[in-house]
Structure formats: structure tokens, C-alpha cells
Amino acid sequence: MDIGSCWKNNGKPCDGDVTSDVTRYSEMIINPDTTPWCNPSNNLRLCPPYHTFANGTQVHRNNTRHFPYDAYHVYCSPGNGKYLEEPFNYCDAYSNPQPQEILQILPHPVWGEYGYPTRKGEGWIGDGRSWELDVGRLSQSLYFYQDPGTKPVERHWTSVDLGTEIYVSGNEVAEWTVSHFDIIVPDKY
């Protein structure tokens, strides 16, 4: 599942200005061979600065006892962020020369409350069950950069993508099967 949207670092909606608009993505990677690049020993810059648990409790990435490092594959900051917390990692300008922010998560127990896979291999080949994902609630708890002192953005995710992306390829072929897909929008939206 990949959700995407766009808002400026000050929380205002995107308006087509490619220097201040930031495309933001959250992606769940279910390939069980994927290991987290986010870790406290040598790649803290690849972790989001904060994790917010389903109950609203926030924990900083420096808190090695409570931060769920294995829940994150990689995080990269928007290239136009003026107040990024050190250490940081800019998103790859090769894939998109305009500012973007990407958060890739991995199956982990912290995502279970939102209906997402909690262990490696769930949702992968041989696990053909149905999933009911609370994408909106999860997206509200994920860290995305915003300039300090600005009004928190009201997140509207304008794209929902489901499928494969081959990140590093040696001539792989991917097959993806979806038998049923519903998007449920609450009445109180």
C-alpha cells in the first residue's frame, strides 16, 4: 500500500510551485527479504525523528529502548526543509527532482492496530487473506516534516496505490494479484 499527497512544509496546500510543494509518500513494504535500514547504531538518519504509537504516545528515535526501529525501512526528508533535525537524509533527487518526503514502513506489531501486517511474510506469497486497513488513521500517526510553529496540516491523501515496485532489479519479474479492493470513506469526512 502506497499513499501519497502534497503539502508545503508550512502546512499549506500545494499550489504548483515546484520549489515549495512537497510530494509525500508512505509505503508499506511486505517483501520478507527487506531489512530495515533504520537502526540506532549507524543509520539513525534513515529513521523518522519520532514514532507515534496508536495511543498517541510519541517516542524520539534516540530512545533506543522504546523506538520501534524494525518498523521502519527508511525515511528521507524533503530537500527544501529548513529546520530538519540532525542527522537527516534527503530524498533521492534522481527519482524526483522536486522536493519529496518518503516514509517506508515494514510489517511490525506497532502497525497491527491499524490492520497492517505485523510479521515478516504476512501479506506475501502464500498468505492470501483479506486485509482491512485503516489507512487514514495510520497516516495521521506517521511522522512527516513540518516547519516549527506552523499550524499542523490537515492531511488529505490524494492517491492510494496498490502494487509492486522493484527497487533494485537484476531483471526480476513481479506478479501482483488483487481480487477485491474497496475504499471506505466515513460519513463524517
Rank of each mutant, 00 (worst) to 15 (best):
S130T: 14
V168M: 15
Y167G: 13
H73L: 01
N96L: 11
L46R: 08
V160R: 14
W7K: 02
N63P: 06
W157S: 00
P40T: 05
Q140R: 10
V178T: 10
E175Q: 15
I166N: 11
Y94V: 15
D15T: 04
Q104D: 08
L142F: 10
L103E: 02
I105F: 01
G112N: 09
G163P: 00
Y83P: 08
G136A: 07
I102E: 00
F67S: 01
W37D: 10
Q104E: 10
L142Y: 06
E85C: 06
L162R: 11
G163F: 06
N96D: 14
P148Q: 05
P99Y: 02
D134M: 04
E113F: 09
L103K: 00
V110S: 01
M28E: 03
C76A: 05
V59F: 04
S130A: 15
Y189M: 13
S26W: 07
V173I: 13
E154L: 13
L106E: 03
T34M: 11
D33I: 10
I125M: 13
L84M: 14
D147F: 10
T150N: 09
P40A: 03
E113L: 10
E165D: 10
K151S: 05
T150R: 10
G149C: 10
D92N: 11
G4Q: 05
I29G: 11
Y25P: 01
E132A: 14
G81R: 09
S20Q: 04
W157C: 03
F181Q: 07
D2K: 15
L84N: 12
N10L: 00
N171V: 11
T64S: 12
H108E: 09
S77I: 02
G149N: 12
C91L: 05
N55R: 08
T52H: 04
P36N: 07
C38L: 00
Q140M: 11
K8T: 04
N43K: 10
V178L: 09
R119W: 02
V22I: 05
L133H: 05
V173R: 14
Y143Q: 06
N10H: 07
V168N: 15
N39D: 06
A174L: 07
K188N: 14
S5N: 14
E154V: 14
E85P: 01
L103Y: 00
H51R: 03
D92T: 07
T177G: 10
D2S: 13
G79P: 01
N80E: 00
R137D: 05
I184V: 15
N9H: 04
A93T: 13
K82F: 02
Q104S: 10
N43P: 04
